[in-house]
Amino acid sequence: MAEVTASMVKDLRDKTGAGMMDCKKALAETAGDMEAAVDWLRAKGLAAAAKKAGRTAAEGLVGVAVNGTKGAAVEVNSETDFVAKNDIFQAFVRTVTGLALDSGADAEALAAMPFPGGEGTVAEKLTANIATIGEQQSLRRTATLEVSQGTVAAYVHNAVAPGIGRIGVLVGLESAAPADVLEPLAKQLAMHVAAANPLALDETGLDPALVERERAIAREKAATSGKPAEIIEKMIEGGVRKFAQESTLVNQLFVMDGKTKVADVVAAAAKAAGTAIALKGFVRMQLGEGIEKQQSDFAAEVAAAAGL
């Protein structure tokens, strides 16, 4: 039997998009014959994944998982929301989210991790799922949040099953306060983050380019007011300040009462607990953020298929 080399496996994978282990098996089964190996993969339905790679995957699921004082969030995309109801897809998202607790905020590192059950890497399992389910899927991103002591709470909005849905949130509270104080507070804050969509924890975390954009908008608005220059400058700074307050978590009004700043809610909890509570950070991951979805003209597709 011909020796199957790593370069042969790579070449077959590039040709077909199939998983590394599947390519190795195909070459072994066909005595190293590349074309026969391609046919072997096609017969098994594994080479079909490559044909789907150009499609836009903007649906799917976000998963969140917590272990002690560390949490992880992962987004896995698919072409249609129908796949989000698939048991195979849901199990994959749930599993890789758990793995992300160890891989950190590096999607490539997560993709290279061994998938439980001896099914190759996470990337290879995903390729196999593409062939099985029949839609393009992608491991898009991952994020983690950790505190030295205290709690990390997870919340899923529009959940389709425990820990997976369309919006996943993590909130970290660092404190020596007991769990029965921290966990309900962190959960409420996570729900707030899902609803209010803050851009940063505080002003220091805001993107400077975004702040300058808001300043330019405020300047343009103020310029039409006819006010003196010194008043216009105050109007501009007021506009920027309002943007920062509305966009940063600690300055937002708590959605649970609509009148208390989040920072004050945390401070009140700390006072009641008799120990400091620090809101250390948050992660908010919404399905499909930043993905430009392709618009399908169904009538044009039918006409093209009919040769019209």
Rank of each mutant, 00 (worst) to 15 (best):
K70V: 05
R94Y: 09
V74T: 11
G98L: 08
T95F: 01
V74C: 12
G98R: 05
A58C: 11
D87Y: 07
V74A: 13
A109V: 01
V83C: 06
F115S: 12
A109M: 04
T95Q: 05
A107R: 10
D87E: 15
V74R: 11
V62D: 14
I88G: 11
G63H: 07
V96L: 04
E75M: 08
E108D: 15
R94K: 15
A58D: 11
V93T: 03
F115R: 07
M113L: 07
S103L: 08
M113H: 02
E59A: 07
A65V: 06
S78Y: 04
I88S: 14
I88T: 14
V74E: 14
F115M: 10
E108Y: 09
G117M: 02
G68T: 00
F82T: 10
K85H: 14
T80G: 08
G104Q: 06
G104T: 03
A111C: 03
F89E: 11
V64G: 10
A112W: 01
P114H: 01
E108M: 12
V93C: 06
V83N: 07
D87L: 12
E108G: 13
A73P: 03
N86A: 09
F82E: 14
G104D: 04
L110E: 11
A72E: 06
A72I: 00
T97F: 04
V66D: 08
A107F: 06
T80W: 13
G98H: 08
V74H: 12
A100L: 04
R94H: 13
V64M: 10
